[in-house]
Amino acid sequence: MKIFEVKKNYFNADLPSQIIKCSLLSAAIILASGCSSLGVQPWERDLLAKEEMALTSSAIDSALDDHIYFSKEASSGGKGFGGGGCGCN
């Protein structure tokens, strides 16, 4: 029973982050498993092929932003690598 208590407390302390992790993970799994029914035919890519629909539509803007926020905040990466690179942090 003691062990159960400890685990329960641990879970409660981290509850918000656990919920976020679980729901994001579930969303990813659901999407991945249902992906074969999603998507378009090659001739339906007119909009997706546009420059502004690229996931990173401006690589330079992204790199400059990453550099600013890496040096001013405790988080980095996520979209791309958040590694080292400068002595600004």
Binding site: A28, L31, A32, C35, L38, G39, V40, E44, R45, D46, L47, L48, M53, L55
Partner: peptide, 10 residues
């Protein structure tokens, strides 16, 4: 993991 959802969404 990247997924095209439909003609308008990725």
């Amino acid at each position: 993991f990247t997924q095209v959802i439909n003609r308008r969404m990725i």
